[in-house]
Design a protein around this nucleic acid. Sequence first.
RNA 1: GGAGGGGUGGGAGAGUGGCUAAAUCCAGCAGACUGUAAAUCUGCCCGCUUCGGCGUACGGUGGUUCGAAUCCACCCCCCUCCA
Length: 374
Amino acid sequence: MTGFSFTVSATDGAARTGVIATPRGEIRTPAFMPVGTAGTVKAMFPEDVRATGADIILGNTYHLMLRPGAERVAALGGLHRFMNWPRPILTDSGGYQVMSLSSLRKMTEEGVSFASHIDGSKHMLTPERSIEIQRLLGSDIQMQLDECPAIPIDHDKAAASIQLSLRWAKRSKRAFEEKSKSGQALFGIVQGANYEDLRRESLETLMKIGFPGYAIGGLAVGEGREEMFRVLDFTTPHMDKAKPRYLMGVGKPGDIVGAVARGVDMFDCVAPTRSGRHGQAWTATGAVNITNARFADDNEPLDPASDCPASRDYSKAYLHHLFKAGEHLGPMLLTWHNLHYYQQLMASLRDAISAGKLADFIASFRAETGEEIL
RNA sequence: GGAGGGGUGGGAGAGUGGCUAAAUCCAGCAGACUGUAAAUCUGCCCGCUUCGGCGUACGGUGGUUCGAAUCCACCCCCCUCCA
């Protein structure tokens, strides 16, 4: 009895569509998971996140352990209740911060010690502690602690890195199985930079350990879209067809479309939220920067046919004004619009796969956005 | 009329002989952002440019000096106070 399951309902080439079932709700795949690092999808009300079509969101072990603290969140009823998001939550392990906060951390076999970016205080994150924190938060899908190196990296260093991540994977699984609740899942993370032999070795070792889902980590870290797709091309075909595949931290719409075509089921990325706060909007015809002077007199909404208020009820001229004036509503509306755009994209991908028309969808997506994705 | 203070690039405002095409901030124009140290960061922002430079410029005119936004003379304008 796991309470966690993945069912593929249709395939189209390498692409699949289906449902991940959890006690807190279903996740339709391919899925995009908005990032809510510090217990909030920035600039969004949880109800509106849900209304865009999101089935699951992310939280972050590192940020939440520093503030407000995992034990405090647990005492307050867990992360779902704390942030008023009753649906599934996936928590990252802190592995990404091994890279993004590389100047503030020190790595050992035991784990990673961080100097808090908030107050400089020291914090040790081991695979066991990361799992404990994710359990305290009440996360539905937990991630093993891993090392996420940037590309380029020497083969020797990448080889040593995957071995460390694999040892941590074993320790993470042991810690998870001691106390996990029914319906919670722990995912292993495939590493290996852009080296085919290392990706294969990482994947095969993880599958021997055995996880209910597998993530592909360490991509979209400087290698470029073409190289990322090349790595996927020699990785996803060897992954367990019965388990969800999660491409961590990806990506822009064109990245997602290309990765779905290569058999990826789950995505997360800060792009729609961060870029939304910074004035960039994704539209049917590609990305635009709403702060550009050409929008000052544009009385059309971003998408008049949308069922999202942010996309439909506010003119580009107004959005432009809000950003120019430094008003908070600008980032709020653009974040909302972008999340809705992403969820519409995922819905369209699911529909296309179900209908066996993914190639047609991709062709029109390329034509309309000008994105090179294959 | 008298006394004092001041006029610097779109705005504010540093700079009181060479390191100054002139700090800094704002405004303006663009770009970046991929498991969020990000409502952030970067570039441009007098004209021309083959991006190496060249030309013009700190109220105006004239001077001193090898060299002036900076010193001197006169003129114009603004502000405060006194009449």
